[in-house]
Simulated assay, not measured.
Amino acid sequence: MQFHEVRFPANLSFGAVGGPERKTEIVSLVNGHEERNTPWAHSRRHYDAGMGMRSLDDVETLIGFFEARQGQMYGFRWKDWSDFKSCLPSGKVAFDDQVIAEGDGEAKAFQLVKLYRSGTHSYARPIKKPVQGTVRIGVEGVEMQEGVHYSVDTATGIVTFEMAPNEGDEITAGFEFDVPVRFDTDRIRSSVASFQAGEVPDVPVIEVRA
């Protein structure tokens, strides 16, 4: 994938508007009932980077970042301030925040995931872009040590153990993470006069499948 492992300036993504999108296909039947289906296993997030702009210096930073990514050509990391931790936004990352897998005695590599729950239903979101230095891993309630017991690929979100966890062992994780995105436009339009008057450039950003 054409992707740059660099984060969009976090101070500029703060205040941006966005969130997850689902794709639902709805067929209305002759009896008035509906059939609903989705071709997407995972949601896709959209943001407006322009909403975080606060000054002309911010616009200059944005343009520099946009040009370095060659518009829509290269993806990059994005900090979603409303959802960037394995725990609640107000909480502190812990090694037992999320159950990511159960050992089978053979597998050594496991994907980081974040579980979203509501009632009896849940959704497991693969986390592909963890933030370096924030990942904590536990096995059966005991925290492991990175570089000794496991390693983390921050470009894929894969955790690899030195020795396979025993069968039935609960593997847990805590982490901060970014969203893999790209610009959803090849053009940025800004006006000095209008920006100083309180208007901001429209800069759509969309999640990519990593």
Results as ranks from 00 to 15, higher is better:
113 V>H: 09
5 E>D: 06
107 A>L: 14
180 P>D: 00
59 V>S: 03
159 V>M: 15
138 G>C: 13
118 S>D: 09
87 C>D: 13
138 G>Y: 02
143 E>P: 07
71 G>M: 14
29 L>D: 03
12 L>R: 02
123 Y>C: 10
105 G>W: 04
13 S>H: 00
7 R>K: 15
21 E>D: 11
106 E>D: 10
61 T>P: 07
22 R>F: 12
183 F>S: 05
38 T>F: 04
96 D>K: 02
67 E>D: 14
25 E>A: 00
204 P>N: 02
204 P>Y: 01
33 H>T: 06
17 V>N: 06
152 V>P: 02
54 R>A: 06
183 F>N: 00
25 E>S: 03
88 L>R: 11
31 N>W: 04
71 G>Y: 10
162 E>F: 10
168 G>I: 13
132 Q>I: 02
39 P>Q: 07
173 A>I: 05
117 R>V: 13
26 I>R: 09
53 M>D: 06
90 S>M: 14
54 R>K: 07
121 H>Y: 03
122 S>T: 05
147 G>E: 08
28 S>V: 11
162 E>R: 14
26 I>P: 07
140 E>G: 15
15 G>R: 05
25 E>K: 01
198 G>A: 05
197 A>I: 03
71 G>A: 08
99 V>F: 08
165 P>S: 14
42 H>A: 00
82 S>V: 09
8 F>N: 07
65 F>K: 01
167 E>R: 10
172 T>E: 13
28 S>G: 08
150 Y>P: 14
31 N>I: 13
78 W>V: 05
155 A>D: 15
151 S>N: 13
142 V>N: 15
208 V>H: 06
60 E>M: 10
1 M>F: 04
111 Q>Y: 07
5 E>P: 00
60 E>I: 14
69 R>I: 11
191 S>E: 12
113 V>Y: 11
94 A>K: 02
91 G>H: 04
201 P>Q: 07
109 A>H: 08
188 I>S: 05
189 R>W: 06
36 R>A: 15
72 Q>Y: 03
205 V>R: 05
174 G>H: 13
156 T>M: 13
13 S>M: 00
29 L>T: 14
128 K>A: 12
124 A>M: 01
14 F>M: 06
79 K>T: 01
17 V>L: 03
73 M>G: 01
95 F>L: 13
111 Q>C: 04
181 V>C: 07
32 G>L: 10
143 E>S: 06
75 G>T: 08
194 S>V: 04
129 K>V: 07
152 V>M: 09
180 P>A: 00
